[in-house]
Simulated assay, not measured.
Amino acid sequence: MDVVRESWRRIERWIASEPALPPVEEMFNPPAALTEIDAAERALGHSFPASYRASLLVHDGQIETGYVPHEWLPNGMYLLTLRETVALWREERAAETRFGNEGDFEGMEEDTGESDRVRDFPTVTAAGRLPMAQNEGISYMYLDLVPGPAGNRGQVIYTRDECSFSVAGSDFADFLSRYADLLERGEARYDAESYDAVVPTDEQATWEDLLCG
């Protein structure tokens, strides 16, 4: 999809303009091979939405550097590789199998104002939610393949706290384009001193204000 490739080019230009960030080729992996994408889909039991598949054909997540990759996504998140997506999805399924019938997840039901778009499950994880970004177990971004009745299959959702979601885009192309807009307009900036992450430029604003308003 041309719109995905163009959004990536815009983000790459923004990264190149940030002196605190390394060159793009040191932050992001090269494209995933079609065979790798097909294998990941088989492992997950789901086909990727077209816009996310197009993104994988530009960059297969961020480069593993031995420490936390640069947190350039909302809420200090970084983009997972295909391998990491499959591994984290499997960890979530294993946790559900281990604890789901023992009541350990009680109290983890979603309490969200977007319940018409994000389906309510007993836990925030679900087999139809594919993890694509994270912040070291603090926050997550998913491709939502099991949306609520007013949502879109393949919408991008992220945890705004431990048990509720916000919708950041109707699909990955929509999210990436709107996020590139925020970066180019200066409504979000990379704060190397306090956070080592991208934050809203207006200290009174939240990511919900920027992405969901």
Rank of each mutant, 00 (worst) to 15 (best):
Arg5Gly: 11
Trp207Gln: 10
Ala192Thr: 09
Asp116Lys: 04
Pro30Gly: 12
Tyr158Leu: 12
Ala173Gln: 03
Asp191Gln: 03
Asp196Lys: 08
Asn135Pro: 03
Glu114Trp: 03
Asp116Ser: 14
Ser139Phe: 00
Arg42Asp: 14
Leu73Met: 06
Val24Trp: 04
Val199His: 05
Cys163Thr: 10
Glu184Ser: 10
Ile37Asn: 04
Gly186Gln: 08
Met77His: 00
Leu145Tyr: 06
Phe48Trp: 05
Leu80Met: 15
Met27Thr: 12
Leu210Arg: 12
Pro30His: 01
Glu203Ile: 15
Val4Gln: 06
Leu80Lys: 13
Asp104Pro: 02
Pro49Ser: 05
Glu12Gln: 05
Asp202Leu: 09
Met77Leu: 04
Arg117Ala: 11
Tyr158Val: 08
Ala127Ser: 13
Gly128Glu: 13
Glu91Lys: 13
Glu109Arg: 11
Ser170Arg: 09
Pro19Arg: 10
Ala94Met: 09
Val86Ile: 06
Ser47Phe: 11
Gly137Trp: 00
Thr159Lys: 01
Thr206Leu: 05
Leu143Lys: 06
Asp181Asn: 13
Glu18Ser: 12
Ala197Cys: 08
Phe175Trp: 13
Val167Lys: 00
Ala127Tyr: 03
His59Gln: 01
Leu44Gly: 11
Pro74Asn: 10
Leu82Ala: 02
Ser170Phe: 00
Phe28Gly: 06
Gly169Trp: 00
Glu114Gly: 09
Tyr67Arg: 15
Arg153Ala: 12
Arg13Tyr: 06
Phe99Gly: 07
Phe165Gln: 07
Pro49Ala: 09
Glu193His: 12
Ala94Asp: 03
Ala168Lys: 01
Glu84Leu: 12
Leu182Phe: 07
Asp191Arg: 02
His70Met: 09
Glu193Lys: 09
Thr159Asp: 00
Thr97Ile: 10
Val58Gln: 07
Ala50Gly: 06
Tyr52Pro: 02
Ser55Trp: 01
Tyr158Met: 09
Glu162Gly: 11
Gly76Gln: 01
Arg10Cys: 01
Asp104Lys: 14
Ile37Leu: 06
Gly100Phe: 00
Ala126Thr: 04
Thr85Met: 09
Phe165Pro: 01
Ala33Asn: 08
Phe175Thr: 11
Leu21Asn: 14
Gly113Tyr: 02
Arg117Trp: 05
Asn135Cys: 10
Arg90Ala: 05
Leu182Gln: 03
Asn29Lys: 05
Ala94Asn: 12
Asp104Cys: 14
Met108Glu: 08
Glu12Thr: 08
Met27Gln: 04
Leu182Ile: 15
Ala33Lys: 09
Asp181Gln: 14
Leu80His: 08
Ser47Gln: 14
Val68Asp: 07
Ser7Trp: 01
Leu21Tyr: 08
Leu80Trp: 00
Ser47Asp: 13
Gly107Ile: 04
Glu184Leu: 10
Leu73Asp: 07
Asp171Leu: 05
His46Lys: 14
Val4His: 05
Thr125Trp: 02
Gly169Val: 03
Gly148Ala: 09
His46Met: 13
Arg83Ala: 13
Ala205Pro: 05
Glu114Val: 14
His46Gln: 15
Tyr179Met: 12
Leu56His: 05
Ala16Trp: 01
Asp202Glu: 11
Cys163Lys: 09
Trp8Ala: 12
Ser166Glu: 00
Tyr142Met: 15
Thr206Ser: 12
Ala127Thr: 15
Arg189Asp: 07
Glu71Cys: 15
Pro23Ser: 15
Thr201Asp: 11
Ser139Gln: 00
Pro22Val: 13
Gly213Ser: 04
Val4Tyr: 02
Cys212Tyr: 03
